[in-house]
């Protein structure tokens, strides 16, 4: 049973500067000592947001002007590093449902799409336009149009990219593949039957 299709996401944005934002930064490992994902939202970008004594650092993510944001705008190679799904889970649980970046690390991208977190690629120049618009007016509404490869904000609009397979999954509501994988059980058994190391 597919989930609700995701054709577009709208919301306010917040700019998180930097390239190579790794998953250790998105959710530091010490907060992963848990057996459920509940509560992870609280630690999103913890060390970027807090000093060692727990006070807020000066950062867009702490700025009340961007408190309503639900779309992250960042740099290249976003989500590099570990395969921890804790990263997109914490993004989702902190109230964000989309990321606009220059590029994404592969495992992070896959994990995010599975959860319905929309990840789209926009050029350096276009992301600059977007972050400038947010900076000028934090209330500006961004709309990521997955179907038409477009991000609009105010009276501007820029192109964005998303892998065709991921786009299809979002548009059809099949971004969580489990149901479809389960349907293939017969074919799986046939494939496994041909491999000697799969035999019990």
């Amino acid at each position: 049973m597919p989930a609700t299709p995701i054709k577009q996401v709208s919301g306010k944005g917040v700019f998180v500067p930097g390239d190579d934002i790794d998953t250790d930064r998105i959710i530091p490992a010490r907060f992963m000592k848990c057996i459920t994902f509940d509560g992870l939202g609280e630690y999103l970008f913890h060390d970027v947001r807090k000093t060692e004594s727990g006070e807020d650092k000066k950062h867009n993510l702490n700025d009340p002007r961007f408190a309503q944001a639900s779309i992250l705008v960042s740099g290249n190679n976003f989500g590099c590093g570990s395969s921890r799904e804790h990263a997109p889970q914490s993004i989702l649980r902190a109230g964000y449902n989309a990321v606009i970046a220059g590029s994404f690390a592969e495992i992070f991208f896959g994990n995010s799409i599975n959860l319905g977190v929309v990840c789209v690629i926009a050029s350096d120049a276009d992301r600059k336009l977007i972050s400038a618009a947010i900076e000028a007016n934090p209330e500006v509404e961004l709309t990521i149009d997955v179907e038409n490869h477009k991000i609009s904000f105010g009276d501007q609009s820029v192109p964005c990219e998303i892998k065709p397979g991921a786009r299809d999954s979002l548009l059809s509501g099949n971004y969580d593949p489990l149901a479809e994988l389960l349907e293939g059980a017969g074919d799986v058994a046939a494939t496994a039957g041909k491999l000697s190391y799969m035999q019990a």
């Binding site: 804790h86 994990n111 799986v188």
Partner: peptide, 16 residues
């Protein structure tokens, strides 16, 4: 390397 939802997929279906 896979994420936790895919760990679920492998446990439940042995596929991703």
């Amino acid at each position: 390397g896979i994420g936790t939802s895919q760990v679920r997929d492998v446990l439940a279906t042995q596929t991703i």
